[in-house]
């Protein structure tokens, strides 16, 4: 980590005090800080946020949780129907993650400036594809797909696919842009086509990183898959939605706890697999 540049300060006998920034630097910094504070204050005013409510928030959360959500009804999440929903969530996240990663690889290739087949047409198209699937939140994708394809896991899988294209596409493209250009130029000068350059000069360099990113994408997709059901995409989220609407608060808290537990298991598992992949490279 590098230290930020500092000014050398006055000579030891000049009688001035040392300061990290020069006069103009300090003025800009203070002005920026002031502008940010004014903007935040105005935002709170504009959003009509009552700061006194903020102070009571955490005691409020505590009161609500201990009154209504405690004790969690663990028996509810241990029945076969709910365990099936957990499996559904797993299936959706795996399928969505896989299709998303498969679609993300060509998009990342198009949207990496150094090896893109055409900088005029495919580069902006690839960028647009990745940015727009990233820009729309997975819950909005779910709602859109539910309105087109109907309730169920197909909509959830489609939404997760879009989410994973955006997530993995950006990471893949960053990884491709950081490759060593030596092999790429060697192959180009030997007359290789763009596809050949990608397959034989780029892929061998990014293979391990791509595997790691793909596993991480599944992990994040699983996290997202726990809530797509909330908007009609199937899986655990659907149980959450139903019990919230029926005000079955103790069941809701059990479901939330089970979601946290599943996400933790997925995170530990993906971390373990990624560590193994990195060791085996």
């Amino acid at each position: 980590m590098t230290m930020t540049e500092t000014n050398p300060g006055p000579a030891p006998d000049s009688g001035q005090t040392w300061s990290r920034y020069g006069a103009t630097g300090a003025a800009t910094r203070h002005a920026t800080l002031l502008a940010v504070l004014v903007f935040l204050g105005y935002s709170l005013h504009f959003l009509n946020v009552d700061l006194s409510r903020l102070l009571g928030t955490f005691s409020g959360v505590w009161r609500v949780v201990s009154d209504r959500y405690y004790p969690p009804e663990i028996a509810y999440v241990a029945n076969a129907g709910y365990l099936g929903a957990i499996l559904d969530t797993l299936q959706m996240s795996f399928l969505g993650g896989f299709i998303g990663v498969v679609c993300a690889i060509p998009l990342a290739w198009f949207s990496a400036w150094n090896v893109t087949p055409s900088r005029r047409i495919l580069f902006p198209l690839g960028r647009l594809g990745v940015i727009s699937s990233r820009a729309i939140h997975e819950t909005i994708w779910t709602i859109l797909f539910v309105s087109i394809l109907g309730f169920g896991m197909l909509a959830g899988v489609s939404a997760l696919t879009m989410f994973c294209i955006g997530f993995a596409g950006k990471l893949f493209a960053d990884e491709i842009e950081a490759v060593d250009m030596g092999p790429v130029e060697a192959m180009r000068s030997a007359g290789a086509s763009d596809l050949q350059v990608f397959v034989w000069a780029v892929v061998p360099q990014v293979r391990v990183a791509f595997t790691g990113i793909a596993i991480y994408t599944w992990d994040v997709a699983f996290r997202a898959a726990t809530v797509v059901g909330f908007f009609g995409g199937g899986g655990m989220g659907w149980y959450l939605k139903r019990n919230i609407q029926q005000l079955e608060n103790t069941k809701v808290s059990a479901i939330i706890l089970s979601i946290i537990a599943m996400v933790l298991i997925a995170e530990v598992f993906s971390g373990w697999v990624r560590a193994r992949v990195n060791r085996a490279k």
Partner: peptide
Amino acid sequence: VLSRSVHEIIWALIFVSAVGLGALPGIL
């Protein structure tokens, strides 16, 4: 770990039930 493993929608549900509707639960 807790902060990352709970999805923002679930955080929002928790805060909406604790502090009511409006921008505040979203911010929290």
